[in-house]
Write a protein that binds this DNA or RNA. Structure first.
Length: 212
DNA sequence: CGCCAGGGCCATA
DNA sequence: TATGGCCATGGC
């Protein structure tokens, strides 16, 4: 069993299935993925609530940029993110907002298209692929990097290296990728911010074993 | 008061 | 390829 699978099992025995992403629709996942860039989720929730149950591609495109900025202000970086939201929504509209149409395409095609959208980088693209469209795209984020550095797992230095390492090491399973990232984030918010071995962390025993 | 949060863009070397 | 500055709010 690989180190990754060992970590997964340790986390899973504690967290179980988290059923991410916390959103009511694929489009809300897309919006949330933009808004949460370098931003705490609690602030993203505040911004999402300010749409007052009226979050649709049409509305995002029709809203004057100033009004959109005012709505998403609590999520920070609101000037750039308002532009990003309009850009990614335009891309979504190019598929007529049709999920089945998007899912018929290959992961590679959709990923490269997303990466050409302003404001969509590696992590945002993979988050959208995995959590909005159910593609087997492993999501790497700051928590993942930190976690691997702590153990340590030499998965690589760049985003692509770490992503490829994980995808090659694990079965390409949407549900596995979904819950793995969800658990890494959930655990990372609480533990292992500074110390290598954190008391109470589900990975505590594993940390001790590896560091010894 | 300072630090950071579920990044990405851009300029520079 | 690899740094560094910048963006902005809210919690601690």
């Amino acid at each position: 069993m690989s180190e990754l699978e060992i970590i997964y099992k340790a986390l899973y025995s504690h967290y179980g299935d988290l059923h991410w992403w916390p959103a009511d629709s694929a489009f809300e996942v897309i919006v949330g993925a933009i808004l949460t860039q370098n931003t705490s989720w609690i602030n993203v929730e505040k911004a999402l609530e300010r749409f007052e149950r009226q979050l649709s591609p049409e509305r995002i495109l029709n809203l004057p940029i100033e009004e959109l900025q005012e709505i998403i202000r609590p999520a920070g970086f609101y000037r750039q993110k308002s532009q990003y939201l309009k850009a990614v929504t335009e891309w979504f509209m190019s598929y007529d907002c049709d999920l089945s149409l998007i899912k018929k395409c290959s992961l590679t095609v959709i990923r490269s298209e997303l990466l050409q959208v302003r404001g969509v980088g590696n992590e945002t693209a993979d988050s959208i692929l995995l959590y909005a469209f159910d593609f087997p795209a492993f999501v790497v984020d700051a928590y993942t990097m930190r976690l691997f550095k702590r153990f340590p797992i030499n998965a690589g230095k760049t985003y692509q290296e770490v992503k490829n390492y994980c995808e090659n090491m694990l079965p390409q399973d949407v549900n596995l990728y979904n819950n793995f990232h969800a658990m890494i984030v959930s655990n990372g918010k609480k533990y292992c911010k500074k110390q290598i071995v954190c008391i109470g962390c589900p990975l505590e025993e594993l940390c001790k074993k590896i560091s010894s």
